[in-house]
Simulated scan of single mutants.
Amino acid sequence: MSSDPLFPGIRPYRSQHLDVDAVHRLYVEECGHPGGLPVVFLHGGPGAGCDAWHRRFFDPKDWRVVLFDQRGCGRSTPHASLEDNTTWDLVADMERIREELGIQRWVLFGGSWGSTLALAYAQAHPQRVLGLILRGVFLCRDRDIGWFYREGANRLLPDHWQDFLAPLPPEERGDPVAAYYRRLTGADELGRMAAARAWSEWEGRAATLVPDPSVISHFRDPFLSLSLARVESHYFVHRAFLEPDQLLRQAHRLAGIPGIIVHGRYDLICPVDQALALHAAWPDSRLHIVPDAGHSAGEPGITAALVAAAREMAVRLS
């Protein structure tokens, strides 16, 4: 008997490319039950894209699952584009997708950057949200970005941090995000690719509690690493296009919306204090700290908790 908590793999029953402005064309797919409870899957990064296994968190008999690749990544075009690519462009894209698919209200399911985007959307359009399932909460405050790219995680993974800093001259290592952004947006193509690999590998090495070669290999993929590094550095150098502490200060807008927060105890990318802060500001949420996990949705305890959360939300909203 399989111990895999995910549902069996399924294929989309509909997919399309949706023009959202003069530059960007988004890949959008639907799977599961066309008449089921609508849920939109919000991938991480920003800049990572969706994978086939992301469909498997949801019972296909109960859910109408919408997945889309955000601007600049995955099957959306143009690849790794930073033009007109902000948090609020993505929030507008979600509204465009919802309207295009004829959905009145939906559940938001997002992890890491996907949790950031879910919160930004829910606070802007609370009347469109049935519930939220969030994993690896990322509030995108200066302190949260700084933990992983300035001071914090570097002390726990000092050898990998040295590899991350290696492409940068010593005089630029005080602000790695800005230094990487300059290289990732520069004219030197070989320099861009080398910087993208180093940036993405640092994230992959920190993503799981126990090192997972398959995860690290995934982050090293040139197509993924370029969009992940370019889009992430673009967002982080601009403070995710959010006001200071915006997502916590506006948490009152989530009043009445049920939420389930899943967070790994040993998350090195997004420390668990972010989940605790959100939970304290959002009384309608329930927090589940997975005791033996890091950041990745693919870790067994995180995966099982997310599948259970989707099941619980379906029962609650049925």
Rank of each mutant, 00 (worst) to 15 (best):
E172F: 08
R173V: 11
G174K: 06
D175N: 13
V177C: 08
V177R: 14
A179Q: 10
Y180E: 03
R182H: 10
R182F: 09
R183M: 09
L184W: 06
T185W: 08
G186Y: 04
G186A: 10
L190S: 03
R192G: 03
A194I: 03
W199H: 09
W199I: 03
E203A: 13
E203R: 09
E203W: 14
E203L: 11
G204M: 02
R205M: 00
R205S: 00
R205V: 02
R205Y: 10
T208C: 06
L209V: 07
V210L: 12
V210R: 12
P211V: 10
D212K: 13
D212N: 15
P213Q: 11
V215F: 05
I216E: 09
S217V: 13
S217Q: 15
S217H: 15
H218M: 03
H218L: 11
F219M: 05
F223P: 12
F223Q: 10
L224S: 07
S225V: 00
S227C: 00
R230L: 01
R230W: 06
S233H: 02
H234D: 00
F236W: 08
V237M: 07
V237H: 12
H238R: 03
A240K: 04
F241L: 06
F241R: 07
R249H: 10
Q250W: 10
A251T: 11
A251E: 02
A255Y: 08
I257S: 09
I257W: 03
G259R: 14
G259Y: 13
I260R: 15
I261Q: 07
H263Y: 07
Y266I: 00
I269G: 08
C270T: 15
C270K: 10
V272I: 14
V272E: 12
D273F: 15
D273S: 09
Q274K: 14
Q274N: 15
Q274F: 14
A275V: 15
H279A: 15
H279F: 15
W282N: 02
W282F: 04
P283I: 00
S285E: 00
S285H: 11
R286I: 01
R286A: 09
